[in-house]
Design a protein around this nucleic acid. Sequence first.
DNA 1: CGCTGACCCTGACGGC
DNA 2: TGCCGTCAGGGTCAGC
Length: 270
Amino acid sequence: MPELPEVETTRRGVEPYSRGCTVETLVVREPRLRWPVPDDLPDRLRGQLIEAVERRGKYLLFRTASGSLMVHLGMSGSLRVQDRAEPPLQHDHVDILMHEGHCLRFNDPRRFGSFLWLPHGESHPLLSHLGPEPLSGGFDGDYLYRRSRGRRGPVKSLVMDGKVVVGVGNIYANEALFLSGIHPARAAGRVSRARYGVLAEHIKRVLTSAIEQGGTTLRDFVGGDGKPGYFAQQLFVYGRGGQPCKRCGATLREVRIGQRSTVYCVACQR
DNA sequence: CGCTGACCCTGACGGC
DNA sequence: TGCCGTCAGGGTCAGC
């Protein structure tokens, strides 16, 4: 389940094998992804030079002169550098083949991922309403505070709302709220400006550290057997419901907020 | 506009 | 052993 750090790790992993390369073709074995892969996508990409590999939220953007290939990994997708002679396995839905010989292979058991086209100079409806990047200067406590006023839903839902800020998935929302001492179910509008400052800092910190961690698995990833890893030993709450809080020893509670599993410490988080 | 819940999908897992 | 229900979760969207 890729979160922003895994997507950024993927971006860095595939960039050396795609930027500056020319697309030979796109092989679509299974077009039924989150949205159907457009029929004309291979034609649009064929012969195009990849000028850059960018990321917006959890979308990967392979930029060419005529537009960008938008790839989303969904929650079970991966994009790996592979030998094109390697026979495709189950759920290997798409290959991006380069004239230089490289093959980027997209595997996605649950097919929540997507391959879409963004014409040059246009905005895409899936991108146009996205909030700021969490690691950018535009994202800070004052911003979160402003966006939270009048909102009565849980603060956890606020930070996971892509229209507020992109790329904060369930794992890191749980972790950042724990590190900030904020109860995940607290009404967003009833969290102080100061506490939003703390929360914004922890969101940045936890994402940055996860990206650095992802960097250490980059070689594996390019090699093909890449397990993301999640630096599980560093997780304070996610996946630890019923276990003792690493800070105070109290039993961590698990509830559902917005259909997502939420773990927190009743003593440390208010 | 804000919030809730349904939905897309497959694999893992527990109970019987 | 195998069947079945449940859960997992990124993100969009309909409906209130």
